[in-house]
Design a binder for these strands. Structure first.
Lengths: 355, 355
DNA sequence: CGGCCGCGTGTAATCGATTGCATAACTAAT
DNA sequence: ATTAGTTATGCAATCGATTACACGCGGCCG
């Protein structure tokens, strides 16, 4: 019954003008006379015309689409950044393609394909561990595909970058523990080869050093940014006789896993141990106890990264120097951190095995 | 220095064949002779050719892309479904465009645009509240755009649907509370006009009825699927003199908000109250106490929905009748539910105002 | 031996929109 | 009145890939 979807030809026929005029009426209205503009609008309305993006993309070699590549959509940290990106992109008329990165050649090929095949005009990368060489090839090739890296930094790669002040924030988080009187402070690490992990570790170290404390390697617990790793890390904590009185966790998820394991063994936060996390996930204020944590400006980060990328797409020289925006994180003090009990003694050591 | 990106013409020239042959060699290799196939492969390798998707889309009127529209990417429930969708789509060579739905005409127009403009071939909708009429127009129009609805059902709309057994699952969750001896059971509701909310409420009612219990309207607490709404609902709970001894919460997030507020007022789960949630979010096993909850098969749901949609795209008659897959949820018993203290008396009533 | 079939390939039309160039109709300036 | 400039429009080429159709060639059957 219904005809095939109307094309610009149909509109032109109906409005008694050429397709060129229709095209102009729609994308640069100031170039056509008022009367024509009206006739075209009417024709569009009547025919129910919608532009075929494939046709336009082919001609203009741009897809009005950005590719967001991230390591794990499920992670609430990333998903809220993705959300902000989508909003900004939508507001500026761009679509958002998502790509899960789980390494292996396959994924990289896909990433490359999307960009080289004109399906996406630019890349917004939320992961610092993609092969730099590949990226540099993409960025400097014929197409010169714009790339913005967010969250994680690819050291001296020259890409535009939007990130948070990880080192400094970690330092302040740790300082908070020190200010509460803690001297025996441990760290629940992030993934070993992750830039962000390393920065947070560095900040942790700086804070200790500036108060004359030394980092005890046995108090750095291997973690992986997820709850299970925090949970697992607790096992080693529990087996120790000399325990830290406070922990700076690389993120909230691992902090939660860690706390949950501790609680099962009767170690209660913040009475027995103070923990500061990172990210301020949605659950942080509602956890038991509510988590003290460094809040990263996730929405702003996503929005600004998307802004930068789209600016770049619309004018390749928009950003002069390689851009580098650093957003400040903010300490949110809740109840998982407390002044150390009895000025510096280690009472956690005692009542441990009594589940 | 670098030339423009190579096209099929370049490959053809290099391999000394026509573009038609190159196209065939790449997309239906069995149609060309072995020798030619080899020459073309070599030419592709040398020139570094990658297909221009816009060109192909234009000719074939298909973008190899699906559009996923959802109400809130940040919600971990949706983001893990999105994750599963993306994996399935990737495996079958499809890209995934995401679209945040926040109603208002603008969003709907965008949704329509993506589909009508040949940027996406099909729609995977994770929200039951989109205007049915619009959808039906899309589905029956010229293009006959395939649509699969997941998670939420659009009642008698005839769309293909993949969802979980909400009514039954809610009934079983409630039954679990009844089995533990609870008789005074409340419900923390989902959003008022949401299909899923209503189904869960229905299941809740069924379970009560089949045990001869009556639903007390004042024990149905308004909620909104998020933590803040759960937190807010607790205020009314606390103000009551006759309280339920157990709550079935429409989802984990609201359950967590609710519990967190209660705890601030000294009401401890599960001693003072039992709570069963819904979804089995990542944090559920690590909350304090670990949450008893109905686990929805989120990955399966996303995967199957994507499968169905892509089947449909590749062969519009693949699914005969309107498909309707119902996945079973599973009760995961943890520590937020317990046998009622002293068979049915209401001890929560007493120690309330002592923060 | 003629006709038919099938295989491998090339020619050229096609998908839908954009845009450089040409043209026509006016206006303004000399 | 002629030229130059401006504005609105149309013509036709173009973007890159796919595919209907045609052709040539060799083999097979009657």
């Amino acid at each position: 019954m219904e005809r095939k979807t109307p094309t610009i030809q149909d509109v032109a026929r109906f409005a008694n003008v050429s397709t060129a005029t229709v095209s102009r009426a729609l994308s640069s209205p100031e170039k056509v006379s008022e009367g024509t503009r009206a006739r075209v609008s009417e024709a569009v309305r009547v025919t129910g015309y919608t532009l075929n993006q494939a046709g336009r993309s082919l001609r203009q070699r741009s897809a009005k689409t950005i590719l967001v590549a991230l390591p794990d959509i499920r992670n609430p940290f990333f998903s809220s950044i993705l959300d902000a990106i989508e909003r900004e992109a939508a507001a500026r008329g761009y679509g958002v393609l998502v790509l899960n990165l789980y390494f292996g050649h396959e994924t990289i090929r896909r990433l490359q394909d999307f960009l080289l095949s004109n399906r996406a005009d630019g890349l917004l990368l939320l992961d610092g561990s993609v092969d730099t060489h590949l990226l540099q090839t993409l960025a400097s090739q014929a197409g010169a595909i714009p790339i913005v890296v967010a969250c994680e930094e690819i050291p001296n790669s020259g890409f535009h970058t939007v990130l948070t002040d990880n080192v400094d924030a970690a330092e302040r988080a740790t300082q908070h523990l020190i200010d509460l009187g803690h001297r025996r402070i441990g760290h629940l690490l992030g993934p070993e080869h992750n830039v962000v992990s390393r920065e947070r570790l560095a900040g942790f170290g700086k804070a200790l050093a500036s108060s004359g404390l030394v980092m005890a390697p046995e108090w750095n617990f291997r973690g992986n940014f997820d709850m299970e790793s925090g949970f697992a890390a607790a096992a080693r904590f529990l087996s120790m006789t000399e325990r830290p009185t406070a922990i700076f966790a690389a993120n909230d998820e691992s902090a939660i896993g860690f706390l949950s394991a501790l609680r099962q063994h009767g170690i209660i936060c913040p009475q027995d141990i103070s923990v500061v996390g990172f990210d301020d996930l949605g659950v942080a204020p509602h956890y038991v106890p509510p988590l003290t944590t460094m809040r990263q400006p996730r929405e702003a980060l996503g929005r600004m990264a998307a802004e930068a990328l789209i600016d770049l797409l619309e004018d390749p020289d928009a950003l002069g120097m390689p851009l580098r925006i650093v957003l400040r994180s903010e300490l949110v003090v809740r109840e998982s951190t407390a002044r150390i009990a009895r000025g510096g003694t280690d009472r956690t050591r005692t009542d441990s095995h009594s589940s």
